[in-house]
Design a protein around this nucleic acid. Structure first.
Lengths: 112, 112
DNA sequence: GAAGAATATGCCTTGACAGGCATATTCTTC
DNA sequence: GAAGAATATGCCTGTCAAGGCATATTCTTC
């Protein structure tokens, strides 16, 4: 769970994942489409792989990366428990009010 | 979205969020229950607040922190589109592969 | 088996960030 | 208004991870 979040937190890795959401992709194409250097892409894919977010499949010299669904299912379950415990805050108005208060607080403390 | 993930990626912050899932909580109690130093807790809460994950409500000298639902709703939406495109992808996986091969063949024969 | 394509890895540098601690700030109570 | 509780902030340090680059590795094709 935490591993999944850590892997997804890095901006370029998130971009890679969102690209892979469309379709499986070889390293070179990822690098090209996201305008990243190939070594960095390989490293990011390594991290994603270690976290269980992607699978690799070799085709000739290429390596096709694709998303695994398991971690996303987990994340979904985790979110579900959250939704349950937060349903009592359904009214938007209450949210907006406390939001305004918090913002004021922050400004005040910064001496703005 | 990315901000939410970054905020959640830090292990102790994740613990704080999971604690707040139960009920709103003042800083001191968070520190005590998670066995963290108060300043670190305040700093983590600052990050969570900046990311819009929590709200603050002052009560006497205490500050009660509570989760906001909006970011989790967003995360949920994001995940939903993900699941959609992943099942779609799974169905068409083989098609995409042979498609790619065919494209390569064509490029090759053109002398690319 | 030599050349070249696609990818992975190792080393280095730098920036960001979490923890520790002291201290400032805010609020209450007397 | 002084004392003390609850919290925030500033500074310092160490660590870790991402980017850059060179190079190793693997596979294909001739």
């Amino acid at each position: 769970m935490n591993a999944t979040l850590i892997a997804l937190a890095e901006p370029n890795r998130l971009r890679i994942v969102e690209l892979l959401r469309e379709k499986p992709c070889p390293v070179g194409e990822i690098a090209k489409r996201l305008r990243l250097r190939q070594p960095q892409v390989s490293k990011h894919l390594r991290v994603l792989s270690d976290a269980g977010l992607v699978d690799v499949r070799p085709v000739a010299q290429q390596r096709i990366y694709e998303l695994r669904s398991a971690p996303f299912d987990e994340l979904d379950k985790w979110l579900e428990t959250f939704r349950r415990s937060m349903t009592y805050r359904m009214d938007r108005l209450d949210d907006l009010i406390s939001e305004r208060k918090a913002k004021k607080e922050r400004e005040k403390q910064r001496g703005d």
